Simulated assay, not measured.
Amino acid sequence: MKEWDAASWRKELEAAEAPFALFVHTPLCGTCSVARRMLGVACEVLPGLPIAAANLNVMPELAERFRIQSVPCLLLWERKGEARNAYRFGSVQELVELLRPLRIKAL
């Protein structure tokens, strides 16, 4: 999972091809740490998954632009320009089912 930085996130977002996912987190959030580990397992189950990560502390404009209400948040782009937010990280299986369509469309 590639980590976006504050200086280039806008370029990364425009260059990204749909479908893809963006894991939005903060470094001191315990729930974010658990969600990242769960996403790591989901990425092993779905190799080649188009996913990146972004630290919301250094890019608050991202929260405004996509109306992020809390972290962890998973932004899902199924089509260019259309994103939806997912806040539930219930289990690895749920994440795999949520992310599987992104991998299928990316192939």
Rank of each mutant, 00 (worst) to 15 (best):
W4T: 07
C43I: 06
L46I: 15
T26V: 15
T31H: 05
W77Q: 00
F66I: 03
E94Q: 09
K2D: 10
A42T: 15
L46R: 13
I104D: 00
P50V: 07
K80A: 15
P47N: 04
V92E: 14
P60H: 12
F23I: 10
E44K: 13
A54V: 05
T26H: 07
A16C: 08
M38G: 07
A63T: 14
E3G: 02
V24C: 06
M1N: 07
G48S: 01
E61S: 15
V41R: 09
L13N: 05
K105N: 03
E61T: 11
S8M: 01
N85T: 08
R10W: 03
R65H: 13
A83F: 04
L75P: 04
I68H: 03
F23A: 11
S33M: 14
L39E: 14
K80Y: 02
L62K: 15
L98W: 06
W9C: 04
H25W: 04
A21R: 05
A16N: 04
V92I: 13
P60D: 06
R79W: 02
C29D: 06
E97H: 05
A83R: 08
C43A: 15
Q69L: 15
W4N: 14
L28W: 11
A35I: 04
F23Y: 14
L107Q: 12
A18N: 02
K105L: 01
L28N: 12
F20S: 04
C29I: 06
L102E: 04
P72Y: 08
R36I: 03
E61Q: 07
L13H: 12
L28R: 14
V71T: 14
L39F: 14
P47I: 03
T26P: 10
L74Y: 02
L98T: 08
Y87W: 09
L74A: 02
S33G: 06
A18P: 12
